[in-house]
């Protein structure tokens, strides 16, 4: 009997894990709750740092997907049971299959910006999220605020729903600093006359060429970086957003208006992942992200033999980190199946 692996979630992590498992001769069922594969990257118009279009990245990942990968779409995995030396996995729609090993590739959910009520998302029309902005870029239309005007000033607020214990998210989402720099540049390219500001606590340019992009934002686009965290925003009569921050490097409270405010929403663990992990008896899920058996040496293993993790469901990752993690997950699974 050929070995069979179920991969849960068909974002970049699930796709890349499945393709690599299949190349090793393993039969894979890739289960995805949505109609199409691709996960969050479907929503990203262009990827940092080199502005590769999200759809192109996904096409490249999907290209040459081996035939022994079967995609089971429109199926949300709701149950997993470990029975002797195999797993029974079931979906909300009655779908059920057995597997020799399973891979969690369930990714993350976007922070719901309405939970930071004082920032005005869902209340003031000209407060949007970074995900909304990607969608606006994708439509290819000229950038206007919700009143139909070209904003003269655009503000980006870092760490919305991340590094914030008031919303129970202590972690850093890792990708939003560089996403803000990328989006600030894209906005400047569309509206060269506009002023663009980023409000940050720390600029975390951890990846290859991220610091370079930050420098380009300064050098070529004159994007302003203010070290201060937004305390609250309000709306004036003209629909502008009035921000209150402390300019911490000058040590003075600062008031500044923006025609459009973009909230850099973070990555949160998916509630459904936690409940699946609970059903399996995984205990190391401290904040909802699945903790690997060892973060340094065994990043794709969990505490349970036969249960693996790949991608952002074990913590915030960029697409390139996710793909590398997925390939390594495939090897970890193959090793477990003694192939």
């Amino acid at each position: 009997m050929p070995k069979h692996v179920i991969v849960i979630g068909a974002g970049p992590a699930g796709l890349e894990t499945s393709a690599n498992l299949a190349k090793l001769g393993i039969a894979v069922t890739l289960v995805e709750k949505e109609e199409s594969t691709g996960g969050h990257v479907k929503q990203w118009h262009a990827l940092f740092p080199a502005l590769l279009p999200g759809t192109e990245a996904l096409d490249a990942i999907r290209k040459g997907m081996p035939e022994n990968v079967r995609v089971q779409n429109k199926t949300t995995v709701t149950g997993i049971e470990a029975v002797n030396n195999y797993f029974t996995v079931s979906g909300h729609n009655g779908w059920q299959e057995k597997a020799d090993a399973i891979v969690f590739a369930t990714g993350f959910q976007l922070f719901d910006a309405r939970r930071k009520e004082e920032y005005g998302y869902g209340i003031y029309e000209n407060v949007i999220t970074s995900a909304d902005l990607e969608e606006m870029f994708a439509t290819g239309k000229s950038l206007v605020n919700r009143h139909g005007n070209k904003p003269e000033r655009i503000g980006f607020v870092h760490c919305v729903g991340s590094r914030d214990e008031k919303v129970n998210n202590l972690h850093c989402s890792k990708v939003c600093c560089i996403t803000a720099v990328k989006q600030a540049i894209e906005v400047k390219q569309m509206l060269p006359e506009a002023e663009v500001f980023c409000f940050y606590m720390d600029l975390r340019m951890f990846g290859r060429h991220y610091e370079e992009l930050y420098k380009e934002a300064q050098e070529k686009y004159n994007i302003q970086f203010i070290r201060g965290r937004l305390s609250e925003s309000a709306e004036d009569q003209d629909g502008n957003i009035v921000l209150k921050v402390e300019d911490t490097l000058l040590g003075k409270p600062l008031r500044i208006k923006a025609g459009l405010l973009v909230l850099m929403v973070g990555m949160e663990p998916l509630a459904g992942t936690k409940s699946l992990a609970d059903k399996l008896g995984l205990t190391k899920v401290p904040d909802g992200f699945i903790q690997p058996a060892d973060e340094v040496l065994q990043s794709n293993f969990t505490e349970l033999p036969g249960v693996f993790v790949a991608g952002a469901c074990s913590g915030p990752k960029s697409v390139s980190d996710t793909l590398a993690d997925a390939r390594s997950a495939a090897l970890a699974v193959a090793g477990f199946l003694k192939l």
């Binding site: 070290r227 965290r229 305390s231 209150k244 921050v245 402390e246 600062l254």
Partner: peptide, 9 residues
Amino acid sequence: ISCGTCSAT
């Protein structure tokens, strides 16, 4: 972490 939210508000 010296974020300054307290002083802004």
